[in-house]
């Protein structure tokens, strides 16, 4: 089967079985390796990308479900040598990056969160992050970064 969708704004046409995980198309066919294969069962969230602006675990999303959709990966945040987005800047300056393997997925969840309207509290931010496992940081600095992105004092861009 052939599936048409966009990845980071560019149209792609992928000829593969409908059950093929989106993650393997991104990593192996398109060379986009920011999203990581951490667990392969949708638990760790290292493969999180945005599908039609919602965070999904690309390792368990079949191509069939992506057809005609819009996919965004971490590579799209500051493409090329463009300045970092607020999510990227805050994560770095808060110390929310250690080994960095969870970071691309974490950033996509945080990006979705900053794009959604609503009153975010620390608890609701933490709840939103439960699909992203970080083994290094203990989460606090990631949550600090997130709060700076979603609250007024963080100065949203």
């Amino acid at each position: 089967m052939s599936y048409k969708f966009t990845v980071n704004g560019e149209g792609v046409d992928i000829d593969a079985a409908g059950v093929t995980p989106l993650l393997s198309v991104l990593r192996e066919d398109l060379g986009l390796t920011a999203a990581k294969l951490g667990c392969g069962e949708g638990r760790c969230g290292a493969c999180t990308v945005l599908l039609n602006d919602r965070p999904v675990a690309a390792c368990v999303v079949p191509l069939e479900a992506v057809a005609d959709g819009a996919v965004r990966t971490a590579e799209s945040l500051a493409s090329g040598d463009a300045p970092l987005t607020q999510v990227q800047e805050e994560l770095l300056s808060a110390g929310g990056v250690q080994c960095g393997a969870c970071t691309p997925g974490m950033m996509m969840t945080l990006t979705a969160l900053t794009e959604q309207q609503g009153e975010w509290t620390e608890d609701s931010v933490r709840a939103a992050l439960t699909g992203n496992i970080c083994r290094c940081t203990g989460y606090h600095k990631i949550v600090d970064a997130a709060m700076r992105c979603v609250t007024a004092e963080g100065g949203s861009r």
Binding site: R27, T33, A34, A35, K36, L37, T73, A74, E75, L77, A78, L84, Q88, L91, L92, S93, G95, V97, G100, A101, T103, P104, M107
Partner: peptide, 21 residues
């Protein structure tokens, strides 16, 4: 002082090359 980590830019751009990549 809390200098930010020197390898952070590649990590947040998603272009750091891990063993798995």
């Amino acid at each position: 002082t809390t200098v930010p980590r020197a390898d952070g830019d590649a990590k947040v751009r998603g272009i750091a090359m891990y063993g798995m990549d």
